[in-house]
Nucleic acid binder design. Structure first.
Length: 287
DNA sequence: ACCCAGGGTCGTC
DNA sequence: GACGACCCTGGG
């Protein structure tokens, strides 16, 4: 396939570092020149900010412009979102300054499900390593610029892996969870479509929770990063820390109930809670 | 060498 | 509802 290039000159809110390192994705890697290269669907792309322009370059199965508009959600006005959130309170305003270039990617639902099951009680370098090894073993190879890249395997492809195979790739106790969830989704071809088409977020959540390895936190991440449900507020150790530091001020953050954080987020941030979560999370974790 | 934490979930009580 | 176990890895 032929390389394509797309130069984006007019945009609001686009900072590669913020987008790729705010914790929403695991397959984008920083290059020596500060650009990022990643794989999504059957595409390999390099994204570079140069003189205020964003340069997208790589191998796409379809038109690179449409591919980027879709994946980077370029039609959404983040200035409007940030203005709205900044007015809520000072701490959030400060966090947004730190990650002002964040955009929530429209990631593949299936890949997001598997990736966040892997993320449970795990650290980011290891999560990235596991996903890379899974892709290399079960995905398709794409060559570009004399480098080899691998697509994330489809449910069919990943269903070839046994529990033992997965354990060998370093999944640890998550091996069984990935195996079982892959089996369910592979054998029920409508599972993902039905999930996508379900309007009621509560039902979506319920369905996700039925999958092995998907608890409340992972379900929220899947809905936020794989389904554009910006009202959910994933609560992890970092967000618990921030919310306690900023608002609750309990001397022992582990004693703060999830319910209290949930209510606080819902009342303060409403249907943009997920976006607020990203700004807070990123600003706190990078500190 | 040892301990601990890491974008939690699951099984058990 | 609370509590411990759980693969594995990098950092103190």
């Amino acid at each position: 396939m032929k390389e394509q290039i797309f130069v984006l000159e007019k945009y609001n809110s686009f900072e590669p570092r913020d987008i790729f390192e705010c914790g929403q994705c695991f397959r984008w890697n920083r290059q020596e020149d500060g650009s990022y290269t990643g794989v999504f669907k059957e595409n390999v792309l390099n994204v570079k900010k140069d003189n205020g322009k964003i340069i997208f370059k790589g191998i796409c199965t379809q038109n690179i412009i449409n591919t980027c508009i879709e994946y980077f959600d370029l039609d959404t006005d983040y200035n409007k979102i940030k203005d709205k959130l900044s007015k809520i309170d000072e701490p959030l305003k400060e966090s947004i300054k730190y990650g002002q270039g964040i955009r929530i990617l429209k990631q593949d639902l299936w890949e997001t499900i598997i990736s966040f099951i892997i993320s449970a009680n795990n650290n980011i370098p290891r999560i990235k390593g596991i996903i890379e090894r899974i892709s290399k073993k079960y995905g398709n190879k794409i060559e570009w610029n004399k480098e080899e890249y691998y697509t994330f395997p489809t449910p069919e492809q990943l269903s070839k892996a046994t529990v033992e195979d997965l354990r060998k790739l370093g999944l640890g106790f998550r091996d069984k969870r990935i195996y079982e969830t892959t089996k369910i989704i592979n054998e029920n071809k409508n599972f993902l479509n039905e999930l996508q088409n379900e309007k009621d977020s509560a039902l979506v959540r319920e369905k996700l929770l039925s999958l092995s390895g998907v608890g409340p936190k992972v379900a929220d991440c899947i809905m936020l990063f794989g389904m554009q449900r910006y009202e959910v507020f994933p609560i992890d150790v970092w967000i618990r820390r921030v919310m306690n530091e900023l608002y609750i001020k309990n001397e022992d953050e582990t004693k703060v109930s999830k319910k209290e954080i949930e209510n606080l987020a819902q009342n303060k941030y409403g249907n943009l809670a997920g976006l607020a979560q990203q700004y807070l999370f990123f600003a706190r974790r990078e500190r």
